[in-house]
């Protein structure tokens, strides 16, 4: 059996990749994918802990997180589209009309 730490380390790696991606990448779609990656790494953590504790709370949480991720995709793509319409670009660095 694979020990729980393996799952946790994998999830942590995925989460870190997502965080770095959000910070480094400039394309709105890629940034959005990185956020989804973060959410899914949390899902993996939930399932691993759920297995360890022997209760279903964590697995149920995963369903809710998936629903939230789907809703986020719908809203996120709509917002990206409206930005594209307003400025013909989805590079986040081009969205710089608002500054200190």
């Amino acid at each position: 059996m694979v020990p729980i730490t393996h799952y946790l380390i994998l999830a942590l790696l995925m989460f870190s990749i997502g965080v770095v991606g959000v910070i480094v990448r400039r394309n709105a779609i890629v940034v959005f994918m990185c956020i989804e990656l973060m959410l899914n790494s949390v899902n993996l953590t939930f399932v691993a802990f759920s297995k360890q504790w022997g209760n279903l709370d964590g697995q149920i949480a995963v369903f809710f997180v998936m629903v939230v991720a789907a809703a986020e995709a719908a809203i996120g793509l709509a917002i990206i589209l409206s930005v594209f319409r307003a400025g013909q670009s989805i590079e986040t660095s081009d969205a710089a009309e608002l500054k200190f």
């Binding site: 990206i80 930005v83 969205a95 009309e97």
Partner: peptide
């Protein structure tokens, strides 16, 4: 309004992050 769309984009990304 472009500023409004931009605000939504920023809030969306940082909020979900």
């Amino acid at each position: 309004v472009r500023r409004s769309a931009e605000a939504a984009l920023k809030y969306f990304f940082l909020g979900s992050f």
